[in-house]
Computed example of a mutant assay.
Amino acid sequence: MYGDKLELQLSGFNDKLPNLLSKLVATISTFMPSEDRFKLYIEGLCHGNFLEEEAISLSNIFKDNFSVQPLPFGMRHYDRVICLPPGANLVGDVSVKNKLERNSVLELDLDKASFKNYKDGLINKLLEKDPSHSCETNRFWNQIVDGRYMFDISQKEAEELKNIQKNDIVDWYKTYLQESSPKCRKLAIRVWGCEVNMIEAETPLKSEVSIKDVEAFKMSSTFYPRPC
């Protein structure tokens, strides 16, 4: 259980799962409010040695136990992305949680050979096979929870990454992060080491706008439309 969502994960032998799931769902349904006040939205993943009819049979267990109206699409949970205004240069400053950490800045001098090594390493990481069946299941489930449903995203990202050169990264930075660019919209979260004077660190430069109240900032922000 996290937030306003309940996540149920079961694993085991195919012949045992229907009985176990039926008992769990039946028990959960006894805690539900009356049907006229309750709506429900369920997503599921059957991953493993299942036949199609077995997976459908498992999903019907929820339908049989929760005879309520489905939750309207507009009321379902979804993540939102803030639309920063043109020319935005926002900063948020926080102190590091680990009081033994002194570093505040890490600089990397990245030559062409180092860039290629980093890129090749990332491609290999993306194309790694899942070390276990449960890892693969979690990867699929994360796509469902995020509402993306791109189960081959690692392969697609690796293919795109093969075509990216160092100049592309530099051009992207100059276009979208360099303050002199008309397309620059920047929100920086700065984590300061334990020995930094936070009063001085939180003093913004003339071109910066400091975020002091995160909740107020979100309430006053514009968000991109919900993706389909």
Rank of each mutant, 00 (worst) to 15 (best):
M75C: 12
H133Q: 08
N138M: 12
E107Q: 01
M75E: 15
H77S: 11
G92D: 05
E128P: 01
V96N: 14
Y78H: 10
N98I: 07
R76L: 11
N103S: 13
A88K: 06
C83V: 02
V105Y: 09
V96S: 11
S104N: 02
N103D: 08
F140I: 13
K99M: 13
S132N: 05
H133I: 06
C135M: 05
E136M: 08
N138H: 07
H133C: 03
L84P: 01
N103R: 12
N103W: 04
R102W: 06
D120K: 12
K97L: 15
K116Y: 07
S95F: 10
S134K: 06
G121D: 13
G121F: 14
L126G: 01
S95G: 07
L122R: 11
H77Y: 10
H77Q: 12
K116G: 03
T137V: 10
L90T: 02
P72D: 11
Y118F: 15
Y78V: 00
Y78K: 04
G92A: 15
L110C: 14
H77N: 11
L106A: 07
P72S: 10
H133L: 09
L106D: 01
E107G: 00
G74P: 03
H77I: 07
N138T: 01
N117M: 12
S132K: 03
L100Y: 12
D120H: 07
C135R: 02
L127C: 05
V94P: 00
R139M: 08
R76A: 09
N89R: 15
P85Y: 07
L100I: 03
I123Q: 10
L100Q: 09
C83M: 11
W141Q: 05
D109P: 00
G121L: 14
C83R: 05
V96W: 04
W141F: 15
V81C: 04
F140A: 05
E128H: 04
P131K: 05
T137F: 15
R102F: 12
G92N: 13
D93I: 11
V94C: 14
C83P: 00
Y78W: 09
F140M: 13
L127S: 02
L84I: 03
E128G: 03
N138R: 05
A88D: 06
G121A: 14
V105C: 04
E107N: 01
I82Q: 01
V91L: 15
N98Y: 10
D130A: 08
P85D: 11
V96K: 04
A88W: 04
S114M: 13
S132P: 03
K116I: 09
H77G: 08
E107V: 00
V81K: 07
D109K: 02
G74C: 10
V81M: 06
N117G: 14
N98T: 02
E136V: 00
S95H: 05
Y78L: 02
L127E: 11
L84F: 06
C135N: 06
K97V: 09
P72G: 10
K116E: 15
S114V: 03
P131S: 10
